[in-house]
């Protein structure tokens, strides 16, 4: 039986859905709806399972709301909020998967979450998440495959392919994270370049780092503390090695004392 608060929640969710799917969705308004809906949900044994087990209907509603919330966060470009929604959704995807029918939005959202982890350069968590996904889907599901391919390219170092992957994203929401990813790639390339090159001509650095103008390179170089020689138009990464000749006196003394003490104990 549909009880009072549940009915109201459903009504509100319908409104939200209408607003969210309309071509000119008002992001702020959707946010308000979501906030109200979440209050309703707390009354319906949403966060803390109470005495009675939540009915499938309630769970379904909660999942729908959270999924919409996650999508809304992407549109509102609010990553922390997206993270929160995903964390809440995971319970519904993993622990209630026996009682609930599978959601059509599950894999797009999980894929998005994977992409988010990549964009934040959080590779270890990316793999942890990957373990929770059915291995058969890794290659078959277009939403999951995309972040996995990006990750492989990142690991190999084929940054070019990542750069071009922006063109063929499986869903429009993905573009948001791929754009952030570009920043991550740039940092990666920068840290590789520091080690691999002694110096780079400015125009070449611009192409390597996917910058459009040399001015951008200069700004970026200042941020990372690279030296730019304006005369020969080159970026210099390396300071001459001075630190190698240092004798680690402190460490040696400490170790020797340690040996002496230990030996004394043995004798």
């Amino acid at each position: 039986m549909t009880t009072g608060p549940l009915k109201e929640a459903f009504a509100l969710y319908d409104q939200l859905k209408k607003e969210f799917t309309s071509p000119k969705a008002d992001i702020a308004k959707c946010g308000q709806y979501l906030a109200k809906l979440k209050i309703y949900l707390t009354e319906l044994s949403f966060l803390l399972p109470g005495e009675r087990a939540a009915s499938a209907e309630e769970l379904l509603l909660a999942r729908e709301v959270l999924e919409t919330g996650a999508q809304w966060s992407i549109r509102a470009k609010d990553i922390p909020s997206f993270e929160r929604y995903i964390f809440q959704l995971k319970t519904y995807y993993n622990d209630y998967n026996a009682t609930l029918p599978p959601s059509a939005r599950m894999y797009p959202l999980l894929g998005l979450n994977l992409l988010r982890l990549l964009a934040q350069n959080n590779i270890s968590e990316f793999h942890t998440e990957l373990e929770l996904i059915d291995p058969d889907l890794l290659n078959d599901n277009v939403y999951i495959r995309h972040p996995i391919q990006i990750e492989q390219c990142l690991m190999e170092g084929s940054y070019n392919k990542v750069w071009h992957s922006r063109a063929n994203v499986p869903a429009e929401e993905y573009a948001f994270f791929v754009d952030i990813l570009v920043g991550t790639i740039r940092d990666e390339i920068a840290s590789c370049s520091e080690k691999a090159y002694d110096s780079l001509p400015l125009p070449d650095a611009a192409t390597l780092l996917y910058f459009k103008s040399e001015a951008e390179v200069v700004a970026f170089a200042n941020e990372r503390g690279w030296k730019i020689n304006q005369k020969d138009k080159k970026v210099y990464f390396r300071e001459t090695d001075l630190d190698a000749t240092d004798i680690p006196a402190d460490q040696v003394i400490h170790q020797t004392l340690e040996y002496a003490r230990e030996l004394e104990r043995i004798v």
Binding site: E156, G157, K195
Partner: peptide
């Protein structure tokens, strides 16, 4: 080039 740079890093 990128792959080699990454291997160096």
């Amino acid at each position: 080039e990128h792959i080699v740079a990454k291997s160096i890093r």
